[in-house]
């Protein structure tokens, strides 16, 4: 049944979020005495004791976890050890840049992948088909960071066409979006092709053609719509992967997003910010996957899950 399936997904999502708070909590405990980290170097033993009481660090570990988890769910991860502001605020400031990059990459990949996949499927076994498939295989094998660096080499260093770093103008978005979207473009093109190949041989497509509908209408309204479901599932996973993939892309292009902040915070040993970033990143990914599951059921009412 659909309802029990969605319920199951919801439970999984909640379990993941609990798992994330647990992982983040363990990080906090393994990095040393949180009280010492909080007061900073040069504090007296009394200061540390006071902090320990104030932050309930003298309580049993389970109670500490529950306190931490309830704080995490309210977005309270404490203050940045370096900047002194609430850690979550620092991460939230960076979130729009990361989302902008992710959706630009997604848009870029779909704009090229869907037409390419359809064309390949329509001209199956032709040279166009083979070229699209070859590019798709290569595109799925290019390491993200190498692609990014090569794009900088060609378009910034050699041709001086596009900026290599920063996020000041719309042009700054082009290279990072291509870098982040390339893998998804390659994979989606392949999926669209195989989905379309299957659907194009079906009876209802033949019927649609026999009715004398224009080919474009047959392709887009009858064929594409039905081959889109498997793509949607993969897309949900892809967006999640892209969101964590932005860590690499942001690093290459000095893009001021969450990944960039998380990485800087690791090297600066600013753990509250790392925790907040990991928690928020994972939660967004879980929510997107959950959203796709719900969308899936909405789009195709035929689907009945056990």
């Amino acid at each position: 049944m659909t309802v029990s399936y969605l319920l199951r997904r919801l439970v999984t999502a909640i379990l993941v979020v609990i798992g994330v708070t647990l992982a983040v909590f363990i990080i906090a405990r393994l990095t040393g005495d949180p009280a010492v980290l909080l007061v900073g170097p040069g504090a007296s033993e009394e200061d540390i004791q006071a902090i320990r009481q104030e932050f309930h660090l003298d309580r049993p570990i389970l109670e500490q976890y529950l306190l931490f988890a309830s704080g995490a769910l309210r977005g309270d991860f404490g203050r940045s050890l370096i900047q002194g502001q609430p850690a979550m605020n620092l991460v939230l400031e960076r979130m729009p840049a990361t989302l902008e990059l992710t959706f630009a990459a997604l848009l870029f990949s779909l704009v090229f992948a869907v037409p390419a996949g359809i064309t390949a499927a329509v001209h199956r076994d032709s040279w166009i088909d083979r070229a699209v498939m070859l590019l798709s295989v290569i595109g799925q094998c290019l390491p993200v960071f190498w692609l990014g660096i090569m794009l900088i080499l060609v378009f910034s260093v050699s041709l001086h066409l596009l900026p290599a770093a920063g996020a000041d103008t719309p042009q700054h978005l082009i290279l990072p979006a291509i870098t982040l979207g390339a893998f998804n473009m390659a994979r989606t093109a392949r999926l669209v092709r195989s989905g379309m190949v299957e659907v194009l041989t079906s009876d209802y497509v033949r019927t649609a053609r026999a009715k004398g509908l224009p080919e474009l209408v047959v392709l887009l309204r009858h064929a594409l719509r039905n081959s889109f479901l498997p793509i949607l599932t993969v897309l949900g996973i892809e967006i999640g992967q892209m969101l964590s993939g932005t860590v690499v892309t942001e690093q290459i292009f000095a893009w001021p997003g969450m990944g960039n902040l998380a990485l800087k915070s690791i090297f600066a040993r600013d753990f509250p910010v790392v925790q907040a970033a990991v928690f928020l990143g994972a939660t967004i990914v879980v929510l997107i996957n959950l959203g796709v599951d719900f969308l899936y059921v909405l789009i195709d009412p035929r689907i009945k899950y056990r």
Binding site: T12, L15, A23, T31, G240, I266, R269, V278, V285
Partner: peptide, 22 residues
């Protein structure tokens, strides 16, 4: 269920978290 949970957890973030500690 465990596999579902693991699959939904972005590995790069997990790696970052683990490397930050270990």
């Amino acid at each position: 269920r465990l596999a579902d949970v693991q699959l939904a957890f972005p590995y790069l973030l997990l790696a970052i978290a683990v490397v930050a500690v270990v």
